[in-house]
């Protein structure tokens, strides 16, 4: 009897081990996306310039965008303890990347550790935050379907004022209310960042930095949401002279107000 138990134990033990050979670390299959994919995924990355592991999350976003081309939109929300700037007399990390809207989003979803993020805000309330090593899996499981709503962004710049029109085109009917939110992000900001193993680095490239949520943090309600309905919401943005407009993007996303889940996101680059 003892031998049988021992034999079975060893058998179970071996079957519970997946040792991957070194020539098999990467899956052989290549991700082929059907051409009619138009659903895009939003990654919101809670970060800070004093968060030494946050550059790893930023690198992961870059790799995810390369793996799923034109399907992933990212916003880096500088908020929380590690985004606090040093006082102006300090030699480094004095830039304040925080925004009131970003702080509001941060405080609402409440990350306690960094890096941390949300993919389409799915999983609210208990599972909305996720580690960056999970983001690619989540994008992989959410992408590959058609969008429930189409988003089209247009803008006119008049002096320091930018008028942004977001037209939404419902492809299904919704039973819950949906809001549209417009954000400005900026890429290629060269500034200080603390990096694990490297210390405080002066020439780190910050991308997708949230500069402003235009109007309310939680957006405007979309009037009609029956199949085929097209609605336009207008947003007015005051351009901050600190922004380098040619590196800025306008992002618009539509979310379900009942569970905060983002159902579609679109991004255009300001020219």
């Amino acid at each position: 009897m003892e031998r049988v138990v021992l034999f079975l134990s060893v058998l179970i033990a071996f079957s519970a081990c997946d040792k991957i050979d070194s020539d098999n670390f990467i899956d052989g299959e290549i991700i082929v996306q059907p051409e009619d994919i138009d659903r895009k995924i939003l990654i919101e990355d809670f970060t800070g310039h004093k968060c030494q592991n946050c550059p790893e999350a930023a690198a992961e976003i870059h790799n995810i965008q390369n793996t799923f081309p034109n399907q992933v939109v990212a916003i880096a929300i500088h908020a929380g303890y590690f985004s606090e700037p040093n006082p102006p007399q300090a030699p480094y990390l004095t830039t304040d990347f925080r925004t009131d809207n970003g702080n509001e989003i941060h405080d609402f979803f409440g990350p306690q550790s960094y890096p941390n993020g949300m993919v389409n805000r799915s999983g609210y309330p208990s599972d909305v935050l996720s580690n960056y090593t999970d983001w690619a899996n989540m994008v992989g499981s959410l992408t590959g379907s058609t969008a429930k709503v189409g988003i089209n962004i247009s803008y006119i710049i008049n002096g320091q004022e930018m008028t942004i029109d977001v037209s939404t085109n419902a492809k299904v009917s919704f039973t819950t209310s949906h809001n549209v939110v417009v954000c400005i992000t900026e890429d290629h900001i060269i500034d200080w960042q603390t990096i694990a193993g490297q210390g405080d680095v002066s020439d780190y490239e910050h991308n997708h930095v949230l500069r402003d949520v235009v109007g309310s943090t939680w957006g405007q309600e979309i009037d009609k949401i029956s199949v085929g309905d097209e609605t336009t919401n207008t947003f007015t943005c005051i351009i901050d002279p600190a922004w380098n407009l040619k590196n800025c993007n306008i992002i618009a996303y539509v979310y379900d107000t009942s569970n905060y889940e983002v159902i579609q996101v679109e991004e255009i680059h300001i020219k």
Binding site: S15, A16, I20, F25, I31, T67, N137
Partner: peptide
């Protein structure tokens, strides 16, 4: 002692072990 963790591999690029054992 022996312990094994099962977790599905959803990774789009890497081949991750679904059963990870420690003893």
């Amino acid at each position: 002692s022996f312990i094994s963790r099962f977790q599905e591999d959803l990774n789009p690029i890497y081949n991750l072990p679904e059963n990870v054992a420690a003893f």
